[in-house]
């Protein structure tokens, strides 16, 4: 179990910690760049020689915390199987699955046409919450206003009937599953303004919004906590009920993908995820089960 919680954060750890002589530092960016890019196609889990090879789930950082939870509970019930959960992003996870480096890919975006040959297993619905600072008086935003804000047409809270101050807009990085879903659900053909701040995880978006009274960003509904406030969109709040009915507009699917129809241990794990137990676990963590 301890091993599991460690693997998820492995990637973040690799990035840190070097104290070399200053002269060497000059070469480090180049080295770091290389190491990073070499790691990318290799997303997936190392196979060591043990009695039973671990099951490898790699992909979206939005799905990762939920997949870790599922794996943790599953391994508790079936100690004979080890499951490694890794991040890396939806695209990297899908790529790793295709290459056979991962048994299951986790994706927080829909598969594009070229990826449709993979088997997709929807596991849950997730909402994207538009969040502001807890002290922000705003409670509702129309979808059109939201689009105008992210397009850079509305830049001041005054235009929304608030105390005049620039809106500090936060988006996710290009290629992120959450950003991808947000662009599809909200922006349509319109591009997100380059003036927006860019953060590379749900957590850091939430951190900034929690500390900046003028910030506005979007994160997965499951990760909203008390320090930030999720806005209603067109008068519909992102509650579980509204997500289930799809009356809240910003809803997307979480997928597991595999190269071939799952068999053996992979199938057992997938069946567990889709079982009443697995689905209720996901519900407890803030998602909406796919079964209904």
């Amino acid at each position: 179990m301890e091993y599991l919680s460690g693997t998820g954060r492995l990637k973040t750890r690799c990035v840190q910690a070097w104290g070399l002589h200053p002269r060497l530092m000059v070469f480090l960016p180049v080295l770091a760049l290389l190491c990073g890019l070499v790691m990318l196609p290799a997303a997936g889990c190392g196979r060591e020689a043990s009695q039973q090879p671990p099951l490898c789930v790699a992909g979206s950082t939005s799905v990762q915390p939920f997949a870790e939870k599922l794996a943790e509970v599953y391994m508790h019930h079936f100690p004979h199987l080890r499951i490694d959960v890794q991040g890396g992003g939806s695209s990297a996870g899908i790529y790793a699955t295709r290459q056979g480096a991962a048994d299951l890919g986790a994706s927080s975006r829909e598969l594009v046409a070229a990826e449709k040959d993979l088997v997709e297993i929807p596991i849950a619905w997730d909402g994207i919450a538009v969040i502001v600072h807890a002290a922000n008086p705003l409670t509702n935003l129309s979808l059109d206003d939201l689009r105008a804000i992210f397009a850079g047409k509305i830049t001041d809270w005054r235009q929304l009937g608030q105390r005049p101050h620039a809106i500090h807009l936060i988006t996710r990085e290009e290629g992120s599953g959450t950003r991808n879903a947000f662009e599809e659900l909200v922006m349509g053909k319109v591009e997100i303004t380059p003036a927006a701040l860019v953060q590379d995880s749900n957590g850091s978006v939430r951190e900034i919004v929690a500390n900046d009274p003028n910030a506005l960003g979007y994160i997965s509904v499951g990760l909203v906590d008390r320090r930030v406030k999720a806005l209603s969109i067109d008068g519909v709040s992102p509650t579980r009920e509204h997500l289930r009915q799809h009356s809240y507009k910003l809803v997307r699917r979480f997928l597991l993908v595999s190269r071939l129809p799952p068999r053996g241990p992979v199938k057992e794990f997938v069946d567990f995820v889709l079982s009443a137990k697995g689905q209720s676990l996901l519900e407890q963590e803030g998602l909406v089960g796919i079964a209904e």
Partner: peptide
Amino acid sequence: TSNIALELGYAS
């Protein structure tokens, strides 16, 4: 540098 590190994880 931040551009590379930021988008690395999702780029293909």
